[in-house]
Amino acid sequence: MRLLEFDYFEAENLEDAVAHLKKYNGSCQIIAGGTDLLTALKQRLYTPACLVSLDNIPSLKNIKEENGAIFIGAMCTLEDIINSELVAKKLPALKQAAWEVGSPLLRSLATIGGNICLNTRCRFYNQSSFWRSSREKCFKAGGSICHVTNKQESCVATFSADMPPVLIAYGASVRLIGPKGTRLLPLRQFYTDNGRFPNEILTGSGEILTEIEIPTPSSQTNSTYCKFRLRNSIDFPLLGIAVLLILDKGKFCKDARIIITGAGSAPIEAVEAREKLLQQELEPQLIDAAAQIAASEIHPMRSSFVSPRYKREIAGVVLAEALEKAGGIRE
Protein backbone atom coordinates (compact mmCIF):
# COMPACT_ATOMS: atom_id res chain seq x y z
CA MET A 1 0.00 0.00 0.00
CA ARG A 2 1.47 3.29 -1.05
CA LEU A 3 0.74 6.74 0.27
CA LEU A 4 -1.72 8.87 -1.64
CA GLU A 5 -0.61 12.22 -2.94
CA PHE A 6 -0.45 15.18 -0.60
CA ASP A 7 1.27 18.54 -0.40
CA TYR A 8 4.18 18.87 1.95
CA PHE A 9 5.06 22.08 3.72
CA GLU A 10 8.18 22.58 5.80
CA ALA A 11 7.37 25.33 8.25
CA GLU A 12 10.21 27.68 9.16
CA ASN A 13 8.46 28.85 12.30
CA LEU A 14 5.37 28.01 14.33
CA GLU A 15 3.32 30.93 13.05
CA ASP A 16 3.82 29.67 9.50
CA ALA A 17 2.75 26.22 10.54
CA VAL A 18 -0.40 27.45 12.26
CA ALA A 19 -1.28 29.62 9.27
CA HIS A 20 -0.78 26.69 6.94
CA LEU A 21 -3.01 24.44 9.01
CA LYS A 22 -5.67 27.11 8.89
CA LYS A 23 -5.34 27.57 5.16
CA TYR A 24 -6.22 23.93 4.49
CA ASN A 25 -9.17 24.13 6.80
CA GLY A 26 -9.02 20.78 8.51
CA SER A 27 -7.50 18.87 5.63
CA CYS A 28 -3.98 19.38 6.87
CA GLN A 29 -2.03 17.58 9.53
CA ILE A 30 1.21 17.99 11.38
CA ILE A 31 3.78 15.28 10.73
CA ALA A 32 6.20 14.78 13.59
CA GLY A 33 8.19 11.52 13.48
CA GLY A 34 5.55 10.07 11.21
CA THR A 35 5.89 6.48 12.39
CA ASP A 36 2.29 6.22 13.50
CA LEU A 37 0.96 8.65 10.91
CA LEU A 38 2.39 6.84 7.89
CA THR A 39 0.69 3.57 8.83
CA ALA A 40 -2.58 5.40 9.36
CA LEU A 41 -2.21 7.08 5.98
CA LYS A 42 -1.46 3.77 4.29
CA GLN A 43 -4.60 2.39 5.88
CA ARG A 44 -6.45 5.48 4.62
CA LEU A 45 -7.61 6.35 8.11
CA TYR A 46 -6.92 9.95 7.14
CA THR A 47 -6.50 11.44 3.70
CA PRO A 48 -4.99 14.87 4.32
CA ALA A 49 -4.40 17.24 1.43
CA CYS A 50 -1.28 18.52 3.10
CA LEU A 51 1.25 17.59 5.75
CA VAL A 52 3.14 20.24 7.68
CA SER A 53 6.60 19.33 8.88
CA LEU A 54 8.19 20.93 11.94
CA ASP A 55 11.66 19.56 11.20
CA ASN A 56 13.09 23.00 10.48
CA ILE A 57 12.16 24.49 13.83
CA PRO A 58 15.16 23.67 16.05
CA SER A 59 13.60 25.09 19.20
CA LEU A 60 11.21 22.15 19.28
CA LYS A 61 14.11 19.78 19.87
CA ASN A 62 15.40 21.19 23.16
CA ILE A 63 15.47 19.54 26.55
CA LYS A 64 16.33 21.94 29.35
CA GLU A 65 15.73 22.78 32.99
CA GLU A 66 14.87 26.33 34.01
CA ASN A 67 13.32 27.87 37.12
CA GLY A 68 12.23 24.62 38.69
CA ALA A 69 10.77 23.09 35.60
CA ILE A 70 11.94 20.82 32.84
CA PHE A 71 11.05 21.74 29.27
CA ILE A 72 10.97 19.17 26.51
CA GLY A 73 10.41 20.19 22.91
CA ALA A 74 7.64 18.28 21.20
CA MET A 75 9.92 17.19 18.35
CA CYS A 76 12.40 15.42 20.62
CA THR A 77 12.58 11.82 19.56
CA LEU A 78 12.07 9.07 22.08
CA GLU A 79 15.71 8.27 21.63
CA ASP A 80 16.60 11.86 22.56
CA ILE A 81 14.59 11.32 25.74
CA ILE A 82 16.35 8.04 26.46
CA ASN A 83 19.76 9.60 25.91
CA SER A 84 19.11 12.77 27.92
CA GLU A 85 21.06 12.88 31.17
CA LEU A 86 18.61 15.39 32.55
CA VAL A 87 15.68 13.07 31.93
CA ALA A 88 17.56 10.09 33.34
CA LYS A 89 18.32 12.00 36.50
CA LYS A 90 15.12 13.90 37.12
CA LEU A 91 12.44 11.98 35.27
CA PRO A 92 13.54 8.32 35.37
CA ALA A 93 10.05 6.97 34.69
CA LEU A 94 9.87 9.02 31.50
CA LYS A 95 13.08 7.48 30.25
CA GLN A 96 11.73 4.07 31.08
CA ALA A 97 8.46 4.67 29.28
CA ALA A 98 10.30 5.99 26.21
CA TRP A 99 12.50 2.90 26.22
CA GLU A 100 9.45 0.68 26.04
CA VAL A 101 7.70 2.35 23.11
CA GLY A 102 7.41 0.39 19.85
CA SER A 103 10.77 -0.98 18.80
CA PRO A 104 14.29 0.46 18.58
CA LEU A 105 13.76 1.22 14.89
CA LEU A 106 10.83 3.47 15.64
CA ARG A 107 12.20 5.17 18.74
CA SER A 108 14.81 7.03 16.73
CA LEU A 109 12.05 8.55 14.58
CA ALA A 110 9.01 8.79 16.87
CA THR A 111 8.69 11.97 18.90
CA ILE A 112 7.37 12.71 22.35
CA GLY A 113 4.87 15.14 20.84
CA GLY A 114 3.61 12.47 18.50
CA ASN A 115 3.25 10.03 21.34
CA ILE A 116 1.25 12.53 23.37
CA CYS A 117 -1.03 13.19 20.38
CA LEU A 118 -1.39 9.49 19.54
CA ASN A 119 -4.88 8.65 18.44
CA THR A 120 -6.91 6.03 20.25
CA ARG A 121 -6.83 2.53 18.79
CA CYS A 122 -9.36 -0.19 18.14
CA ARG A 123 -9.19 -3.58 16.47
CA PHE A 124 -12.06 -2.54 14.22
CA TYR A 125 -10.54 0.82 13.32
CA ASN A 126 -6.80 0.36 12.89
CA GLN A 127 -7.19 -1.72 9.75
CA SER A 128 -6.83 -1.11 6.03
CA SER A 129 -9.57 0.48 3.99
CA PHE A 130 -10.24 -2.90 2.37
CA TRP A 131 -10.55 -4.55 5.76
CA ARG A 132 -12.95 -1.94 7.00
CA SER A 133 -15.09 -2.23 3.86
CA SER A 134 -16.39 -5.60 5.12
CA ARG A 135 -18.39 -3.76 7.73
CA GLU A 136 -20.46 -0.69 8.11
CA LYS A 137 -18.30 2.37 8.75
CA CYS A 138 -17.68 2.71 12.46
CA PHE A 139 -18.29 5.89 14.39
CA LYS A 140 -14.61 6.74 14.66
CA ALA A 141 -14.27 6.41 10.89
CA GLY A 142 -17.21 8.74 10.31
CA GLY A 143 -20.07 6.24 10.45
CA SER A 144 -22.66 5.90 13.15
CA ILE A 145 -22.03 2.57 14.89
CA CYS A 146 -19.46 1.21 17.30
CA HIS A 147 -18.57 -2.40 16.46
CA VAL A 148 -17.30 -3.05 19.96
CA THR A 149 -20.48 -2.07 21.77
CA ASN A 150 -22.96 -2.14 18.88
CA LYS A 151 -24.17 1.22 20.10
CA GLN A 152 -24.89 4.23 17.94
CA GLU A 153 -22.82 7.39 18.06
CA SER A 154 -20.28 6.00 20.49
CA CYS A 155 -16.61 5.12 20.31
CA VAL A 156 -14.67 3.17 22.89
CA ALA A 157 -11.32 3.07 21.12
CA THR A 158 -8.48 2.69 23.58
CA PHE A 159 -5.86 5.22 24.51
CA SER A 160 -2.56 3.35 24.23
CA ALA A 161 0.29 5.84 24.43
CA ASP A 162 3.10 5.19 26.91
CA MET A 163 4.44 8.66 27.61
CA PRO A 164 1.30 10.51 28.74
CA PRO A 165 0.58 8.51 31.91
CA VAL A 166 4.09 9.21 33.14
CA LEU A 167 3.91 12.87 32.19
CA ILE A 168 0.55 13.29 33.88
CA ALA A 169 1.91 11.62 36.99
CA TYR A 170 4.75 14.17 36.96
CA GLY A 171 2.17 16.94 36.69
CA ALA A 172 3.17 17.97 33.18
CA SER A 173 1.50 20.66 31.11
CA VAL A 174 1.61 21.06 27.36
CA ARG A 175 2.05 24.26 25.43
CA LEU A 176 -0.22 24.61 22.44
CA ILE A 177 -0.08 27.23 19.76
CA GLY A 178 -3.03 27.94 17.53
CA PRO A 179 -4.93 30.61 15.66
CA LYS A 180 -5.96 32.16 18.98
CA GLY A 181 -2.47 32.24 20.39
CA THR A 182 -0.56 30.17 22.89
CA ARG A 183 -1.88 28.37 25.92
CA LEU A 184 -0.48 26.12 28.61
CA LEU A 185 -2.76 23.24 29.47
CA PRO A 186 -2.35 20.61 32.17
CA LEU A 187 -1.77 17.44 30.14
CA ARG A 188 -4.68 15.62 31.73
CA GLN A 189 -6.99 18.32 30.41
CA PHE A 190 -5.58 17.83 26.93
CA TYR A 191 -7.48 14.55 26.74
CA THR A 192 -11.20 14.43 26.14
CA ASP A 193 -12.08 10.82 27.05
CA ASN A 194 -13.88 10.75 23.71
CA GLY A 195 -12.73 7.70 21.75
CA ARG A 196 -13.36 9.37 18.45
CA PHE A 197 -11.63 12.70 19.13
CA PRO A 198 -9.41 11.85 22.07
CA ASN A 199 -7.50 15.11 22.44
CA GLU A 200 -7.80 18.84 21.91
CA ILE A 201 -5.90 18.79 18.62
CA LEU A 202 -7.91 15.91 17.19
CA THR A 203 -11.11 17.77 18.03
CA GLY A 204 -9.98 20.22 15.36
CA SER A 205 -8.63 23.12 17.38
CA GLY A 206 -6.06 23.84 14.68
CA GLU A 207 -3.36 23.89 17.32
CA ILE A 208 0.14 22.51 17.45
CA LEU A 209 1.75 20.94 20.50
CA THR A 210 5.10 22.65 20.94
CA GLU A 211 6.47 21.87 24.34
CA ILE A 212 6.00 19.88 27.51
CA GLU A 213 6.63 21.55 30.82
CA ILE A 214 7.23 19.42 33.87
CA PRO A 215 7.79 20.79 37.37
CA THR A 216 11.11 19.42 38.54
CA PRO A 217 10.23 16.60 40.93
CA SER A 218 11.34 16.91 44.53
CA SER A 219 13.97 14.66 45.98
CA GLN A 220 11.25 12.70 47.78
CA THR A 221 9.69 11.73 44.48
CA ASN A 222 9.74 8.10 43.49
CA SER A 223 8.38 7.22 40.11
CA THR A 224 8.07 4.30 37.77
CA TYR A 225 6.27 3.06 34.71
CA CYS A 226 5.18 -0.55 34.37
CA LYS A 227 4.08 -1.67 30.94
CA PHE A 228 2.26 -4.91 30.38
CA ARG A 229 2.16 -6.21 26.84
CA LEU A 230 1.89 -9.59 25.22
CA ARG A 231 5.23 -9.28 23.46
CA ASN A 232 8.12 -7.26 24.81
CA SER A 233 8.78 -5.27 21.66
CA ILE A 234 6.77 -4.23 18.60
CA ASP A 235 3.68 -4.00 20.76
CA PHE A 236 1.41 -1.41 22.29
CA PRO A 237 0.73 -1.64 25.99
CA LEU A 238 -2.17 -3.84 26.92
CA LEU A 239 -1.96 -1.83 30.06
CA GLY A 240 0.59 0.66 31.32
CA ILE A 241 0.67 2.19 34.76
CA ALA A 242 2.68 5.18 35.87
CA VAL A 243 3.13 5.60 39.59
CA LEU A 244 4.54 8.56 41.39
CA LEU A 245 4.97 8.53 45.13
CA ILE A 246 6.14 11.27 47.44
CA LEU A 247 7.58 9.31 50.28
CA ASP A 248 8.65 10.61 53.63
CA LYS A 249 11.45 8.67 55.28
CA GLY A 250 11.27 6.39 52.29
CA LYS A 251 8.03 4.80 53.40
CA PHE A 252 5.31 7.19 54.46
CA CYS A 253 3.15 8.13 51.53
CA LYS A 254 2.64 11.89 51.49
CA ASP A 255 1.28 11.98 48.00
CA ALA A 256 0.64 9.59 45.14
CA ARG A 257 -0.38 9.53 41.51
CA ILE A 258 -1.53 6.48 39.61
CA ILE A 259 -2.19 6.97 35.91
CA ILE A 260 -3.25 4.11 33.66
CA THR A 261 -3.00 3.78 29.90
CA GLY A 262 -4.69 1.11 27.81
CA ALA A 263 -7.80 0.96 29.97
CA GLY A 264 -10.10 3.56 28.47
CA SER A 265 -10.29 6.28 25.87
CA ALA A 266 -8.00 8.56 27.87
CA PRO A 267 -5.31 8.13 30.49
CA ILE A 268 -7.17 7.19 33.67
CA GLU A 269 -6.25 8.37 37.12
CA ALA A 270 -6.95 5.80 39.81
CA VAL A 271 -8.31 8.27 42.33
CA GLU A 272 -9.64 5.88 44.92
CA ALA A 273 -6.51 3.77 44.93
CA ARG A 274 -4.57 6.96 45.54
CA GLU A 275 -6.81 7.86 48.46
CA LYS A 276 -6.09 4.48 49.96
CA LEU A 277 -2.36 5.14 49.90
CA LEU A 278 -2.32 8.68 51.26
CA GLN A 279 -0.90 9.21 54.72
CA GLN A 280 -0.12 5.52 55.05
CA GLU A 281 3.01 3.47 55.38
CA LEU A 282 3.67 1.67 52.16
CA GLU A 283 3.62 -2.03 52.92
CA PRO A 284 2.50 -5.17 51.05
CA GLN A 285 -1.03 -5.33 52.46
CA LEU A 286 -1.72 -1.72 51.63
CA ILE A 287 -0.34 -2.23 48.13
CA ASP A 288 -2.61 -5.20 47.54
CA ALA A 289 -5.62 -3.27 48.76
CA ALA A 290 -4.81 -0.30 46.53
CA ALA A 291 -4.24 -2.62 43.57
CA GLN A 292 -7.66 -4.17 44.01
CA ILE A 293 -9.29 -0.78 44.19
CA ALA A 294 -7.53 0.39 41.04
CA ALA A 295 -8.75 -2.68 39.15
CA SER A 296 -12.31 -1.66 39.91
CA GLU A 297 -11.68 1.91 38.79
CA ILE A 298 -11.11 1.01 35.15
CA HIS A 299 -13.68 -0.07 32.64
CA PRO A 300 -11.80 -1.46 29.68
CA MET A 301 -13.69 -2.37 26.52
CA ARG A 302 -13.13 -5.19 24.08
CA SER A 303 -11.34 -3.01 21.60
CA SER A 304 -8.21 -5.15 21.83
CA PHE A 305 -7.65 -8.90 21.74
CA VAL A 306 -8.13 -9.62 25.42
CA SER A 307 -11.25 -9.55 27.53
CA PRO A 308 -12.03 -6.64 29.83
CA ARG A 309 -12.02 -9.11 32.69
CA TYR A 310 -8.46 -10.06 31.98
CA LYS A 311 -7.43 -6.42 31.77
CA ARG A 312 -8.96 -5.65 35.13
CA GLU A 313 -7.18 -8.59 36.69
CA ILE A 314 -3.90 -7.44 35.17
CA ALA A 315 -4.44 -3.88 36.33
CA GLY A 316 -4.22 -5.02 39.96
CA VAL A 317 -1.11 -7.08 39.30
CA VAL A 318 0.68 -4.37 37.35
CA LEU A 319 -0.20 -1.67 39.87
CA ALA A 320 1.07 -3.76 42.76
CA GLU A 321 4.30 -4.22 40.84
CA ALA A 322 4.54 -0.53 40.09
CA LEU A 323 3.91 0.45 43.71
CA GLU A 324 6.50 -2.02 44.91
CA LYS A 325 9.00 -0.68 42.42
CA ALA A 326 8.32 2.96 43.17
CA GLY A 327 8.35 2.23 46.87
CA GLY A 328 11.67 0.48 46.55
CA ILE A 329 10.23 -2.83 47.72
CA ARG A 330 11.29 -4.64 44.57
CA GLU A 331 13.91 -4.15 41.90
Binding site: L38, L105, L109
Partner: peptide, 12 residues
Amino acid sequence: KPVSSCSLLAVK
Protein backbone atom coordinates in the same frame (compact mmCIF):
# COMPACT_ATOMS: atom_id res chain seq x y z
CA LYS B 1 21.01 5.23 13.67
CA PRO B 2 18.81 2.32 12.59
CA VAL B 3 15.37 3.33 11.37
CA SER B 4 12.50 1.67 9.55
CA SER B 5 12.78 3.28 6.13
CA CYS B 6 9.16 2.38 5.30
CA SER B 7 8.03 4.60 8.13
CA LEU B 8 9.99 7.64 7.09
CA LEU B 9 9.09 10.06 4.33
CA ALA B 10 12.08 10.49 2.05
CA VAL B 11 11.70 14.28 2.26
CA LYS B 12 12.44 14.03 5.95
